[in-house]
Design a binder for these strands. Structure first.
Length: 380
DNA sequence: AAGACGGGGCG
DNA sequence: CGCCCAGTCTT
């Protein structure tokens, strides 16, 4: 298993953010005990009843934290429950095939997470009999464990007093400290250090979850509900009169528009599908053969060429089926879908696979392919 | 430091 | 339709 470079020293902080002491009140920042007790009291009274808060199993907590990466709680709940039912322990997960894991992950996005979780489970079972390391530092060596997930699992499952910084916490603390404009790295270090001091409690896991819950329920984007906040009295952002000013947003990148085409070939009761390479976009997922348009190329030509390159089959267009639009985080695609038929074969061996409609439903497919599959299997 | 990596929900 | 979300990994 690959080793990851150790993270930078988090102790060193810059003073390019506004420190509480620089405000009018010298005792602006309340004591860690007061902050923690107010936060945890609020959490105890207002926490949502989420499935991963009903367990102390490190495996279950780990799965929830990975699913929650860049994914909203409401979306994760159903996936989490189904995943834990399918793979109840780290050993079950390790013994599963990757395509079974991907099928459970289908529709959740960021499929590298599913590969990492699978790889990690196999590593743990083979190297430590399925037991997790219990410190943030050791956890961060595992695949799919970055700074956030390592701290989250270490604190929630094992009680280690380390802060977990996610988008919620960054937003909450940016407001609470009223950080002045600085590089994201500098702001992160400042928040990390502050929270490490505030984490004077034996409920480290609850403290971290409370911070995130506060961000999700009260200190929300774009405007916080300061009247509901347990620490609003000492919040520099609220004192500034415009807590919604944080965090500062970076300029959005332009999303390129991409055109692509693919073909549906149905013959002798079976559909032709291809699997995407394991690494890269939508790695390991299945789709209908095709490809992106090259310059000055028609969708029909791209469709036929894509099928030939991906499967070795020479196809002809029968009729246009539909057009599917799909937006990714960094580009947008318009996919033209054709009904095709086989008119010949090349000598190069293809990698296509023929599947029945039943098997088609069992495959983990890309978003666009799922739309096409739905249309084929559930015609209106 | 910046870009790749998904998808659904919300105003 | 643009913005956001319990981030990680690669370059």
């Amino acid at each position: 298993m690959r080793k990851k470079p150790s993270p930078g020293n988090l102790e060193k902080t810059q003073s390019s953010v506004l420190s509480p002491q620089s405000l009018e009140s010298p005792q602006f920042l309340e004591s860690p005990q007061t902050f923690g007790s107010r936060l945890l009291s609020w959490y105890d009274a207002n926490r949502r009843d989420l499935p991963w808060r009903r367990t102390t199993d490190p495996y279950a907590i780990w799965i929830s934290e990975v699913m929650l990466q860049q994914t909203q709680v409401s979306r994760v709940v159903e996936y989490y429950q189904r995943f834990l039912k399918t793979f109840p322990t780290v050993r079950h997960l390790a013994e599963a095939r990757l395509d079974e894991v991907l099928k459970q992950w289908e529709g959740l996005g960021y499929y590298g997470r599913a590969r990492a979780v699978h790889e990690c489970a196999r590593f743990l079972v083979s190297e430590t009999s399925g037991k997790f390391p219990q410190t943030r530092g050791e956890l961060e060596e595992l695949p799919g464990f970055g700074p956030y997930t390592a701290a989250a699992v270490a604190s929630i499952a094992f009680g280690e007093p380390v802060p977990a910084l996610d988008a919620n916490v960054i937003r909450v603390m940016s407001r609470y400290l009223a950080v002045s404009p600085a590089t994201p790295t500098t702001i992160r270090k400042r928040i990390q250090t502050t929270l490490q001091d505030l984490l004077a409690t034996d409920r480290a896991g609850d403290f971290n979850q409370a911070m995130m819950e506060l961000g999700a329920l009260v200190c929300r984007h774009p405007q916080p509900s300061c009247l509901l906040c347990p620490v609003s009295e000492t919040c520099a952002g609220r004192l500034s009169g415009n807590p919604g000013a944080w965090p500062v947003k970076k300029q959005p990148a332009v999303k390129p528009q991409v055109r692509a085409a693919c073909g549906v070939i149905f013959q002798r009761g079976k559909y032709l599908v291809v699997q995407r390479p394991l690494q890269g976009l939508l790695g390991g997922l299945w789709e209908f053969p095709g490809g992106r348009l090259q310059s000055e190329e028609t969708v029909e030509t791209a469709c036929v060429r894509g099928i030939k390159e991906k499967t070795g089959i020479l196809a002809g267009i029968v009729a246009p089926l539909t057009t599917v639009n799909h937006t990714f985080s960094h580009f947008r695609v318009e996919l033209s879908v054709f009904h095709c038929r086989i008119i010949g074969m090349t000598f190069t061996s293809g990698k296509g696979k023929w599947v029945t409609s039943i098997q088609l439903q069992e495959l983990a497919m890309t978003g666009t392919a799922r739309k096409i599959r739905k249309m084929l299997l559930e015609p209106q």
